[in-house]
Amino acid sequence: MIVAEPKPIKELLEMVQDFNKILVIGCKGCVTVCNVGGLKEVGILASTLKIARKKDGREIEVGEHVLERQCDPEYIDEVKDIIDDYDAVISLACGVGPQFLSERYPSARIFPGVNTKFMGGAVEHGVWSERCAGCGQCVIHYFGGLCPIARCSKSLMNGPCGGSSHGKCEISDDVDCIWDIIVRKMMAQGRLDELVKFRPPKSWTTARDGGPRKMVREELVI
């Protein structure tokens, strides 16, 4: 899933300080799963905004709405009859959501309510970890099914570097050295011969480096 974290309340309050009618829009996709932009979090943010504003003696009206997804135009349409009732919108979806809203409703003021972090998963309850860099050309099968592009701090294709220490990356003890894991796994599988094979430079044309990406699948286009 796409993993996001809440923006600090202070930052959000500053963003919307000039507005008195705010619509908070959540998303039932990834941000619900990572507990940052679902029904619950929409309620919490709405309540917090109201408390903070009341405290300062400034009334605020906060609407709450949760969309099936904010990355599909058909769901974005759902708020077309209510969005004009508000001065501003806070989207609790990943970076895609507020942009789809901005594109669909050109006159609306749309604000991002979360910081989108990475593509990853929950390694334990309340802990998420990055797994994919979206490079557009998956090569994990060369590396014991683990991705050095996303998970090595230097995206080394021929690691590990000299900074690997006790299974941890040189940048932080909180970061596992993925190359340590790759090497140990592949050696245990008896695949040393693959490990010592030189991996040539990767083409980044399919990654973000190749420019903003678009995908068309003719069989699905109506």
Binding site: K40, G43, I44, S47, T48, I51
Partner: peptide
């Protein structure tokens, strides 16, 4: 008890 329940009391 959810965070929202507690906040609602303050609200």
């Amino acid at each position: 008890i959810e965070i929202l329940h507690l906040l609602k009391a303050f609200e």
